[in-house]
Design a protein around this nucleic acid. Structure first.
Lengths: 237, 237
DNA sequence: TCAATAGTGTCTTTAAGACAATATATA
DNA sequence: TATATATTGTCTTAAAGACACTATTGA
């Protein structure tokens, strides 16, 4: 038998694979807190519980795993988040009552404003503050996945400005610093934070200013390469 | 219908999942070079080509994905490597001619001596130097997976001593430094390298010395926690 | 002018880079 | 003693921490 004959005689139905899903921990920053997107499960198992957005691969329409997660996030938020990164894959025979199951989990970030209107139209999707999420009983092992994503994002906040993707397109340095501070769980040295941003040249100065209380703050935009930039030294934590 | 009834009526055969495999990029260090374990494929597709060790989940016997990869690595090397870490999950409809397929890929490290005897007994398993691997035509997208693992390990060599798990139980600082240098692709400052090891207290001094040419070198062992330790500052590269 | 917030100056501290110097083996 | 390799000393440099100070707005 050659490979061609093998493939002709191969029938997928003869081999059962574990259940395979894709999930995402989508963060945003709003009203001085980090929030995570939760979805109410419409069907069994765990029907009625809240869990991470996600679902099955559509083999006809998804070319890659990443396309699956983008499609799912767009279904729930109306938009495709500017930052999406694979987090981990969890697979065992206990996490789903249907049997051996595997989920490929992603971390994603988006501006609150980018999906506010869309999310307001549906009851089965909501943002939950990270202060409240631990109290909820999430579906499957989704709490654990969230915790993993949170921990990774915390690490990233020490050596990158990835958390900035949870902010709107245009933001102040104080806002950016505060997202990092929320993730790290303690205040940062303002001067250090600004100094390294300046040196790494990761932001575009819009020239605009935001007037609220006090001195108006300069408004910045993320440069595209800022998703990949890594400082060679971590901030203290 | 309640959840119990749902599960009773649920039949996995009604839902086809993509093909799911687990693969590993297993590195070792021998004769001053890094090497990767390759396995000759015994069956279609890609029969006869060399590729990464890996295979399907055994739903009856594997409790988790990690157990699957450990089982596969033990089959090929005779031992369970001391360092195993999930690398990434690659999934699309092109990587396998049988259709939509997903692989969960791990990075692992082991001492050459730990599996030398076992590997010598089989023809279908071999170590390939990283200088030669790019020339080979590996099965599926295994070259890309290897490159990904190599890049990640290079990054880790800048802020951890994870590469030390490619060495035997007992090793000299010169050996450890050289593994890092091979990964990074340039010489390191000897003093910096030793200074940070000393400070982080990651090694156990065995008290023994290795006598070769020149001054005998002190022999060390990795402390268990050294797999997780991260320096707060990267070495230059 | 005061309160509030944004942003800067500058000294200290930490840890890496550079590289010379010393130490301990064998031939 | 010469050679080889291991190990240390120490000065320089880069970048973060600490924290006080100045700047710019509205009330």
């Amino acid at each position: 038998m050659n490979e061609k004959e093998f493939l002709a005689s191969y029938d997928r139905k003869d081999y059962l694979s574990p259940l395979l899903t894709v999930d995402a921990v989508l963060f945003t920053y709003h009203e001085n807190t980090l929030k995570v997107l939760l979805v109410e499960r419409a069907s069994f198992p765990e029907k009625g519980k809240w869990g991470l957005p996600g679902g099955f691969i559509d083999e006809q329409n998804d070319q890659t795993l990443e396309e699956t997660v983008l499609r799912k996030l767009k279904e729930k938020t109306g938009v495709i988040p500017p930052y999406v990164e694979q987090l981990c894959t969890e697979g065992n025979h206990q996490r789903d009552p249907r049997g051996w199951s595997v989920t490929v989990c992603y971390t994603a970030l988006i501006a609150y404003q980018a999906c506010e209107a869309h999310i307001d139209t549906v009851d089965s999707v909501k943002w939950v503050s990270i202060d409240e999420i631990e109290q909820l009983t999430l579906a499957f092992d989704h709490l654990k996945l969230y915790q993993h994503a949170r921990e990774r994002l915390k690490q990233k906040s020490l050596y990158s400005i990835v958390p900035g993707f949870a902010l709107p397109d245009v933001f102040t340095l104080a806002e950016l610093q505060h997202v990092h501070e929320v993730l790290i769980g303690k205040p940062l040295q303002n001067k250090s934070f600004r100094r390294r941003l300046e040196q790494a040249d990761l932001l575009i100065d819009t020239g605009e200013k935001r007037h609220e209380r006090g001195r108006p703050a300069n408004l910045y935009r993320l440069k595209p390469q800022s998703a990949d930039y890594r400082f060679i030294r971590n901030l203290e934590f």
